[in-house]
Simulated assay, not measured.
Amino acid sequence: MISADDGTFSYLPVPVIRVQGTPEYCGFEYGVAAQALIGANLDLYLRRFRVEAGLDLAAVRTAGDAFRRTTVELHPRVAQMLDGVAEGAGVGVGEIYALNARTELIYGSTTAPAVVDGRDGGCTAAGVLGTHTASGNLLLGQNWDWHPDQREAMVLLATRDERGLTVLALAEAGMLAKTGLNSAGVGVCVNMLGCDRDGLPTDGTPPGVPYHVLLRAALEADSLAGAFKAAMRGTRNSSINLLLGQAGESGGELIDLELVPGDAGWLHPVDGVLTHANHLESGVRVHDTMKDYGGSSMFRSARARRLLGPAALAGKVTEDDLAELFGDHASFPHAICRHVDERDAVADRSETVYSVLLDLDDLRLGIAAGPPCGHEYGWLSLTR
Rank of each mutant, 00 (worst) to 15 (best):
S3I: 13
D5S: 09
T8I: 07
F9Q: 07
I17R: 07
V19T: 12
V19F: 05
G21H: 08
E24I: 09
G27V: 03
Y30C: 03
A36D: 11
I38A: 03
Y45R: 00
G54E: 12
L57S: 10
A58R: 06
T62W: 07
R68G: 06
R68Q: 13
R68V: 06
R69E: 11
T70D: 02
T70Y: 00
H75K: 03
R77S: 14
G84K: 05
G84F: 03
A86F: 00
E87Y: 07
E87M: 08
V91Q: 01
A112S: 15
P113D: 03
A114D: 11
V116I: 12
G118R: 01
R119I: 14
A126W: 00
A126S: 08
A126R: 01
H132R: 15
A134L: 14
S135T: 08
L138E: 07
Q150K: 10
V155Q: 03
L156S: 09
A158L: 08
E162A: 14
A171G: 03
A173H: 00
A173V: 08
M175R: 07
L181N: 06
G185P: 01
V186M: 06
C189V: 06
V190Q: 01
M192A: 14
D196G: 10
T205A: 13
T205K: 05
P206D: 05
P207H: 04
G208Q: 00
V209Q: 01
L214H: 05
E220T: 07
A221T: 02
S223A: 05
L224P: 14
K229T: 14
A231V: 04
L244V: 08
Q246V: 04
A247D: 12
A247W: 05
G248Y: 07
L259V: 06
V260Y: 05
P261H: 06
G262L: 02
G262D: 04
A264R: 09
A264C: 09
L267S: 13
H268Y: 15
D271C: 12
V273N: 05
L274R: 08
H287Q: 15
M298Q: 12
R303H: 14
R306H: 12
A312M: 02
L313M: 14
L313D: 12
A314D: 14
G315D: 11
V317D: 13
T318W: 10
L322D: 13
L325T: 02
F326Y: 06
D328H: 15
F332S: 15
P333R: 14
C337M: 09
C337E: 14
E342C: 09
A345W: 09
A345G: 14
A347I: 14
S350E: 13
E351R: 08
T352C: 12
V356K: 00
D362H: 13
R364A: 09
R364I: 06
P371Q: 06
P372S: 15
G374P: 04
E376M: 15
G378L: 11
